[in-house]
């Protein structure tokens, strides 16, 4: 069961602003989703190793060789605000 408080808590962690009505609505929707998923708990998993990935293939490794395709201008181009080549963000510590 996901109640409204839980939704507001998660919203806060995710930096989302929700009003009361939205919180109640999502609490119900998320509870429904989780209730559905909860059916999986009825399956007997005794002695079954937990699945970590849906694609059980061997680890893919990359060689430790430096490579850079883009210049710094290109890389910071999408930042809403920059200062020199640094990315400018709202204050973190006030």
């Amino acid at each position: 069961m996901i109640d409204k408080d839980k939704v507001l808590h998660i919203a806060k962690l995710a930096r989302l602003h929700l009003n009361e009505q939205e919180a109640s609505q999502y609490a119900k929707q998320l509870s429904d989703v989780l209730g559905y998923i909860d059916k999986l708990n009825q399956a007997d998993t005794q002695g079954v190793e937990p699945m970590v990935t849906a694609s059980p293939i061997e680890t893919v490794y990359r060689a430790d060789e430096p490579k850079m395709d883009l210049g710094v201008e290109e890389k910071i181009k999408n930042a809403p605000e920059t200062s020199g080549h640094l990315i400018k963000v709202p204050p973190v510590v006030s």
């Binding site: 850079m68 710094v72 890389k75 990315i87």
Partner: peptide
């Protein structure tokens, strides 16, 4: 990722998507 780990790089130079 394949970005170099050099210490002296310019700001945001050793980065990639």
């Amino acid at each position: 990722c394949s970005c170099p780990t050099t210490f002296e790089a310019g700001d945001n130079e050793n980065t990639c998507p």
